[in-house]
Write a protein that binds this DNA or RNA. Structure first.
Lengths: 215, 215, 215, 215
DNA sequence: TATGAATGAGTATTCATTCAT
DNA sequence: GATGAATGAATACTCATTCAT
C-alpha cells in the first residue's frame, strides 16, 4: 500500500495480475479523489497516475461511480471488520466501543478515508446511493448498539446513544479532512487522544478516579 | 429566512432592494448546494428556484464560486460571533467553550451549515481556497485557545488541545450531514447532548459529581 | 425551403426569429442525415452547416434523437395532410388513393424524405421509437382503408389490402433512396408513372380500356 | 440456416471447419444487424451470439464493414441467381420478371434481407460503397431489361422501364422492414400477392380477361 | 486458434460565463 | 435590471481495432 506502484509490468499468473491491476485502479482513484475531490478528478487524471489510457480503466471498472463505490467499500470494510472483532471480544460495551474507534481511526487515515466519508448520495445514482447509505447506516447502528450495551453493563454512563454515536462518527470522520495537511500523529495516537477525551470528558476528574485506562 | 421568497417584486429604495435580492440569491444557492451538492447544482437550478434567468444571477454575484464562498461566510459568521460573545463573557474556559458549541450547532443546522463544512479548497480557486482555509483555521485556533484556557483555569482536565478542538469541530460539522434526513432534535437540544457528552465523557461519573450542567 | 439560408442574421421579432432558427436547425439536420446517414452525422457537422457552435443546437433542440424525430414528423406531416385532403374529397377509393400517392411522392422527394423512411426504432429510444411506429402505422392503416373502400365502391379490383398498401408504401419509400442520385424526374412525374403502373398493371390492357387516366 | 449453432466444436477437416465458422460469423452478423441495425450492433454483440470473443471475429473477417458487405453479397447472390435462372428460361419477359420477383421475395425475407437493403454507401468506405452500388445497379439493370423485353414481346404493356423497376424493387425491398414484425405470410405468398398486383393493377379487369395467371 | 489486454479516435451532452439588447 | 442567445471548454463513455501470448 505504499506508492501507487504501477503493476502494469508485474509478472505472475493472469488471474492474480488482473486483480492487482484492478486494485491499483481503485487505489489511484482513491488518492486522486482525496486530493482533488470526486468531481474535479477526471478519468484522464486517474489514467495518467497509472500511466495508462482512459479506456483501460473501463476494463477494470465499469464506471466512475463504481470507482468511488469501491473506494468507499474498501474503507468501510476496515471499519466493519473492527466492528466484527469488537463484537467477538470478551469485553464491556465501552471497551468494545474503544476498539471500534481504534479501527475507525486506522481506516479513516488510510488512502480510502476520504472516499469513505465523502461518498455521498448526491454524487451517485439513486441505486448506488441507496447501497452506500445502507452500509453507512449499518456502522451507525453498530455503534449505537455498543453504546446501549455499555449503558446496560454499567461501563458507560447515562447518555443518548444516537447523539453519542453521531458525535463519535463525526469526530472520527473529520479526521479525513485535516489529516491530509497535518499527519503529525499516527492513527493510533489520534485514537488514543480521542478515547481519552470521549471516555473521560473535558471536566477534570476528581483525582484518583481515572477510568480512561481500563483495568 | 423562511421560504426563499423571491424578492423580485418587493418595493423599497434601490439600495435596500438590491441587498435583499442578493441575499435571496445566496440563500437559494445555499439550499440548492445543501440539497444536491455544489457540483450537482447548476446555475440554472438556482435561477429556477428564484424564478429568474441565469444571467441575472451574475448581477448579484460574480461567480458560482463566490456563491459558495458567501454561503460559507454566512455560516461561519454565526460561529464567529458566538466565539466573539464567548470571548467577551465573564466565564471559565469550559463555559465559554460550551457557549461556542451552542452557537456552532445553531449555525450548522441552518441553511448555510452544509456550505460551511463542505466548502473545500478542492472546489475553489487557489485564492478563494486560501481565504476559506484561513477563516476556518481562525475558528480552530479560537477553540484550541479556549481549551487551553480551560486547562489553565482548571475548568478542563488535562488533554491535547488540538485533538480536542478537532474532535469537537468534527462532531459539530457532522451534524450537517445527518440533520437533513433526521431533524428530530433542535439545534439547542443537540448542543445540550453534545455538551453533556464532551464535558462528562462516557465513563460513568461517581454519583454526585455532575459537572456538565453546573452554572 | 431552398438553400439552408442561415437565419442567424435575419431581422424580425424575437418569437418569429427563434422559430425560423429552429426550423433551420431541423432542415440542416435533415440534409445532413440524408447525405451521411444518422449515425455518421455528428452534431458538429450540423453545427458547421449552420455556422454555429454545437451547444447552440441544444438551444433549439433537446437531443440528436429529437432532431431525427422532428425531421420525421415534418416529412410525415405532408403525407398526413395528403391523406386528410383525400379523406375530404368527393371521389372513389381509387381516386383518393391516387391523390395520396401524389402527396406521398412530394413528401418523399423533399429534404425530409430520407428521415421519413429511415427514422427507425433501432436508432431511437424506446419511447421515441414507439411514437414513430404509431405515426407510421397510422399512415399504413389509412392506405389500407382507402384500398378497402375502393374495392367496395368498385373502383379497385379484388386484392389483398394489406399487401397492396405495403407494396405502395415500399415503392414510394424507395424513392428516397434513388432520388438523391437521380433526380431527373419531378415528384409529380414520378407519381404519374407510379399511378399508371399501379392502376393498370404490367399486363397489356385490351385496347380501349384505359382506366388509369379517367377523371 | 436454423439457429446460429456455434460451430466452434464441430469436427471435420480444417478447410471445411474454417468455412463453416466464417459462415456462422456472417450469419450472426446478419441477424444482429437486422435486429439492432448496423451502427447499434457492436462486435461484442456479434461475438456474444457466437460465444466467442471479439478478436476471434477478426480471424474470419477483416472488418466490421466487411461483415456487412458479406451479408449484403449473400442476400444479393440469391437475387442474382434468380435473375440468372430467369435469363436462361424459355419464357416471355413478363414471366421472367415474375420469376425474379419470386426469388427476390425469397431473398429479402431471409436473414440477409435487411443487410441487402440497408447496406449503404453511408456506412461504408468509398471503395466498398462503390462495389455495392455496382452490384445493386446490376440487379436494377437486369430488371429494367426484363421490362423492356416484355414490352417488346408484348407480354408487358407500355410503361417506363426505369420507374417500373424502381417501383418493383422498392416494394420488394420494403418487405425487409415489415417482415420482422409481421411474418404472417411466407415469401411465396407475398410474391404471389405482389405479382397479382403488379401484373393486373388495381383497376378492376373486365371480367373474363385475367392475365395474372399466365396461360 | 483464440483471447486478454490495451488503445486511439470519436461523440453527445453539460455548464459556467459573456454580451448585445 | 433582466434576458435571449451563444459559446468554449470539459468530460464520461463507446467501440473498432491491434497485438503479444
Amino acid at each position: 500500500m505504499g506508492k501507487p506502484t504501477s503493476p502494469w509490468q508485474v509478472p505472475g499468473d493472469r488471474e492474480r495480475r488482473r486483480e492487482l491491476k484492478r486494485d491499483a485502479v481503485i487505489l489511484a482513484a482513491a488518492r486522486a479523489f482525496r486530493e482533488r475531490g470526486y468531481h474535479n478528478t477526471s478519468l484522464d487524471d486517474i489514467a495518467a497516475l497509472l500511466h495508462v489510457t482512459k479506456p483501460t480503466l473501463y476494463y477494470y471498472v465499469s464506471n466512475k461511480e463504481q470507482m468511488l463505490f469501491e473506494c468507499f467499500r474498501e474503507g468501510l470494510g476496515r471499519v466493519a471488520s473492527a466492528c466484527g472483532e469488537a463484537r467477538g471480544a470478551q469485553a464491556s460495551g465501552r471497551e468494545r466501543l474503544v476498539e471500534v474507534v481504534r479501527g475507525y481511526a486506522e481506516a479513516i487515515t488510510s488512502d480510502f478515508g476520504w472516499c469513505m466519508v465523502r461518498a455521498e448520495d448526491q454524487d451517485l445514482s439513486p441505486a448506488m446511493g441507496a447501497r452506500i447509505k445502507k452500509l453507512k447506516s449499518g456502522i451507525d447502528q453498530e455503534m449505537r448498539a455498543l453504546v446501549r450495551q455499555g449503558i446496560t453493563d454499567g461501563s458507560i454512563g447515562h447518555c443518548d446513544p444516537k447523539m453519542t454515536a453521531f458525535a463519535l462518527a463525526g469526530a472520527l470522520n473529520w479526521i479525513a479532512h485535516w489529516y491530509r495537511d497535518d499527519a503529525s500523529l499516527s492513527a493510533a495516537e489520534i485514537a488514543e487522544r480521542f478515547v481519552e477525551l470521549f471516555v473521560n470528558g473535558l471536566a477534570p476528574r476528581p483525582s484518583g478516579v481515572t477510568s480512561g485506562k481500563s483495568p
